[in-house]
């Protein structure tokens, strides 16, 4: 997959979510008739209508495995250039991770996490620089504080704790973004579809 570079790096969701999965099977596809445009819904079906239809047939037959929708808020300074790893990673096949690039993980307010869940994400992951490595000195510390709030709100809403994660990239064991996403996707797959899926 050709990597497109975000010009300004403004912390805004890209209109069309980038797909990591080599094969384009998506979670339960539904008719694209929706009142408001939902990026989580439209992107995969638009991109691969044929495969989606096949996947739905597979699901009807009871054979397809659950493909979670993941939203990844990724800091430009630690995650940049690593999506390709995710695309080629061992477990990534078939999963569409939607990247939301931010200049710093400190930008990701609890409301952004909630927005992703509201739109039907099965899992949300925030990726930032390791402690002491923040390009803006303390953005990741802010994220660590805000993440506590996000976690509490998500747990009050009754969503499983495994659906939300904060990861420093590279991980303590040197894990790349791709490996982290693979592992997170697997975990969310086990939790199952979000009750907020539309």
């Amino acid at each position: 997959m050709k990597k497109e570079k975000q010009a300004s790096g403004t912390p805004k969701a890209r209109p069309a979510a980038k797909k990591v999965g080599a094969t384009a099977g998506t979670g339960a596809p539904k008719p694209a008739a929706s009142k408001k445009e939902n990026p989580l819904k439209s992107a995969p079906t638009d991109a691969a209508p044929v495969e989606a239809a096949t996947a739905s047939k597979g699901a009807a037959a009871g054979g397809a495995r659950f493909e979670p929708r993941i939203v990844a808020f990724v800091c430009e300074w630690c995650g940049d250039g690593q999506e390709a790893d995710g695309a080629n990673g061992p477990g990534a096949g078939g999963t569409a991770v939607r990247f939301v690039h931010v200049m710093c993980s400190g930008r990701v307010q609890p409301s952004m996490v909630l927005k992703a869940f509201e739109l039907g994400a099965d899992g949300v992951i925030v990726c930032g620089c390791r402690p002491g490595k923040c390009h803006y000195y303390f953005g990741n510390e802010r994220q660590a504080e805000m993440f506590e709030t996000s976690k509490k709100l998500v747990s009050l809403l009754g969503l499983e704790a495994d659906r939300l994660r904060l990861e420093w990239i590279p991980g303590p064991d040197g894990r790349t973004l791709g490996a982290v996403l693979d592992e997170f996707t697997e975990k969310v797959r086990r939790v199952g579809p979000s009750p907020l899926r539309k």
Partner: peptide, 8 residues
């Protein structure tokens, strides 16, 4: 608050 409460 980034519409956090409206989202909730």
């Amino acid at each position: 608050h980034g519409s956090a409460f409206q989202l909730l």
